[in-house]
Design a protein around this nucleic acid. Structure first.
Lengths: 304, 304
DNA sequence: TCTTTGCATAGGAATTGGCGATGTTGCGGT
DNA sequence: ACCGCAACATCGCCAATTCCTATGCAAAGA
């Protein structure tokens, strides 16, 4: 158990600086008896007489007191440093932001968000992590992330959601598929086609729901958690897929040509959002990044 | 004004170590609500949420909390260092002792006292200073010395005296003086001789008092604050002196031969003592040195 | 669904920290 | 030699803080 307080240390150092209890009390804005008592108590608690009392002419440090005061001064400075850093962390936009991001969203948005934010706030650095929706939830709850960028689907209610933008799903077809003739593909036209499912939570739920809302029970021919595998399977003519993320380029890894077509029906759009723990009080930095993201998507229009 | 206390820091760090408020409370021996409230208050005061609360499974640090806790841990360690050092200063025989010494006493005793003490306590170092009686008083009062080695004459009553040994004054005569024939010199035989006074406080007072007690009003032919000057004057046959310190050798600087004779009368002896400020609470180190000095002189007999 | 676990809240007691008023004591001026 | 002043200590009281016990509440696990 610590036997002194920072306040006692502060008082003792101030008394030393002023060479008198009375002068220190004026400087600290407390009554002289308060300091006198605090000093006496500190001396009792550390077991050392720190000051020699002179009648009518202040106090002077004892040899042992001088040594103590030198170290006490360091400790006080240390505490003041911590105080300053902490106050800055609460009120300034600086420090480290830990951002988690859903794996398929990250490459599309995170680089731009980070670079535009850091241009505004050079004192900031950002720690990035990617993961599945569940990993992001766990990361938020476990304190690994301040914020998570993810799809607003099946969100647990201990998270606070800030919607950023909505993105429209599309149909991915092999280039030589017969439906590529249409400018828009009605989902009903896909009723009997084999479906290739991008099998990541929550995309799985989202895609299934879209088809279900169109009255279709998809024939899931394949499913894979990898976007590139899905594109490869489609490229090989093994079926169609429905996706939201749009890599540049119209070929799969293997080189097969792919075609993108809008969905003819008015489907539920995917909402990308920032999530934070509801119970977390946000630092200035976190709030600033959140506002920056909202602003970023507002400027470029709400749809992609 | 500092916005957190060492106790709060200690609590927060302990909570972090245990990963739960409940476990930390058991470890600290305080009630769980105490910690819960203290943590909430600390978070409010520093303006940061440090921990994320999990129902039924403890707490985990937030990203901002993790940074704060890392620095808080340093501060706590710093405070504990100071506590440990201070406790050692109060209870162990170690550190620095500041010893003042009357100029004419220092060379005769201080080297032996220091070396024998440091042989017993290797963790000790001793800072030496010499001065006149008044300078030593001021040094004790101003915190420059822990202890002063001096003559117990005319001591102000704010000092506590520890007598160490008594030394016997002697008569110093030119070697060819007629009284050197006597084995002991009665002071009354010096009634009409010119007296050479070693004029340092308090020696001056002491020597005058000895002569006065023998019913003699000395004819002060010369006075000097330097022992060697007095010996030189005596060597030149300009008078006798009464001294207590006994340098080795029986010649003055100038080479004149000197003779020492005991005083026949039963005169007041000079008492060498350690002085400390009455109001000073002594450290273990100071007490140990004081005891060592008493013991040193007891062993070699009370007289020199 | 029920029990357990663990944080939060409430209320009251004890401690601490603060104040003004007053006491004490040496220093410096008259 | 005395007196007033300066500065620290002490006292008594009040307010704020800290700590405790008892209780509430929500999620996890059986």
């Amino acid at each position: 158990m610590l036997r002194f307080t920072l306040r006692q240390i502060e008082y003792a150092v101030t008394i030393h600086d002023h060479g008198s209890v009375a002068a220190a009390s004026a400087s600290l804005g407390v009554a002289q008896p308060t300091l006198s008592a605090a000093l006496a108590k500190l001396e009792e608690q550390v077991g050392l007489q720190l000051f020699i009392r002179h009648h009518a002419q202040g106090v002077s440090p004892s040899p042992a007191g001088l040594k103590f005061l030198a170290e006490a001064r360091n400790l006080l400075a240390h505490a003041q440093d911590l105080q300053r850093d902490t106050a800055a962390a609460g009120t300034a936009v600086e420090g480290v932001l830990s951002l988690g991001s859903f794996a398929t969203i990250a490459p599309a948005f995170v680089p731009q968000l980070i670079s535009s934010f850091m241009a505004l706030h050079p004192a900031v650095s950002i720690r990035m992590a990617e993961g599945t929706q569940d990993e992001l939830f766990a990361g938020l709850r476990g304190g690994q992330h301040d914020l998570a960028l993810l799809y607003d689907v099946d969100m647990p209610d201990d998270l606070a959601i800030t919607p950023l933008t909505a993105i429209t799903p599309y149909v991915l077809l092999p280039a030589k598929h017969r439906l590529t003739r249409l400018r828009q593909v009605p989902l009903v036209a896909l009723r009997d086609e084999p479906f290739i499912l991008l099998n990541i939570a929550p995309s799985r739920v989202y895609f299934s729901r879209i088809l279900e809302q169109a009255g279709i029970t998809p024939k899931v021919a394949f499913s894979s958690p990898s976007l590139e595998v899905v594109r490869g399977l489609v490229g090989q003519g093994l079926g169609y897929s429905i996706l939201v993320t749009r890599p540049h380029g119209d070929h799969s890894y293997a080189g097969d040509e792919l075609t993108i077509r809008p969905i003819a029906e008015d489907v539920e759009r995917g909402v990308i959002a920032l999530a934070a723990l509801k119970q977390m009080r946000k630092t200035r930095l976190v709030s600033a990044f959140e506002a920056h993201c909202v602003n970023y998507f507002k400027k470029r229009g709400s749809s992609v």
